[in-house]
Amino acid sequence: MQLQRSKWKAFSEGLIEWTIRVSGISAVVFVFAIFIFVFWEGKGLLFSDDFSISELLTSEKWDPTHTPPSYGAARIILGTFSVALVAMIITVPFSLGGAVFISEFCGPRLKEILKVVIELLAAIPSVVWGFIGLKITSVYMKELGADAGVSLLNGAIILALMSMPIIVSISEDALNAVPDSYREAAIGLGVTKWQMVYRVLLPGAKNGLLAAVLLGMGRVVGETMAVLMATGNADNNPFSSDAPFLDLLVSVKTMTATIAKEMGDTVNGGDHYQVLFLLGVLLFSITFIVNLTAHLVIHGVKRK
């Protein structure tokens, strides 16, 4: 009986294991490659003399097709954050409420159904959400008396609905991760469910809940199609120095939508093309930091 494997078999096994190892680090390679390629395409402009990074970040004049062009993305950046902020203000109470209900208040049967519904909602493509924002909610906004149907508020409502499933499911996981002994101890003291949620579960799961909100935020900031279709794409500054400080019914432009809309009209390698890549670098950095923070927050929970 031959116990030794053939050379060929040992070799092919080694080959397979190496392919697996290479695939294993592919994710790292891709993340670096994304950053390098996006940066590379925009670097020419970044280091050229007639461009300043402070102008990009602080100037409010975005006129890339004019000669001479002006690349001030302040309004675009403010637009991005205003939409994300309003969306989070709308969605967080609903999502956390929903997560508490699914995790603590409903029966196992309903829980199962709701979790499936949430998962299906998370799968709705962003272009369909954008379409809903463009053709349905904006029409109602107009009927309710807004001048323009597509606006900051319209986009924020769509983004709120979009980010709801992700926040609900991560929050629900966070609530589940609170040990049952905490619940038993609370119930043993004779508290009602709501008191238990309010005094024990929410403080116990606060890191997970924070991470859920952060991940939702990352998703909202990086969302492209929905904001492109639902916010109207006019570079207005929604913030103002006098009350009410934030005009919800104004049409705004976001970084993602600017890249998506204007990239098709640029000359490859031109200044406009490069500045859009720089916006991409900025966007990548923002979402990278948000995701990293969320990851560290969750990790802190696990170590405990």
Partner: peptide, 12 residues
């Protein structure tokens, strides 16, 4: 992070 990179950055 790869899962969190915005789709438009993937496009770029």
């Amino acid at each position: 992070n790869l899962a969190g990179v915005p789709s438009i950055v993937h496009a770029l």
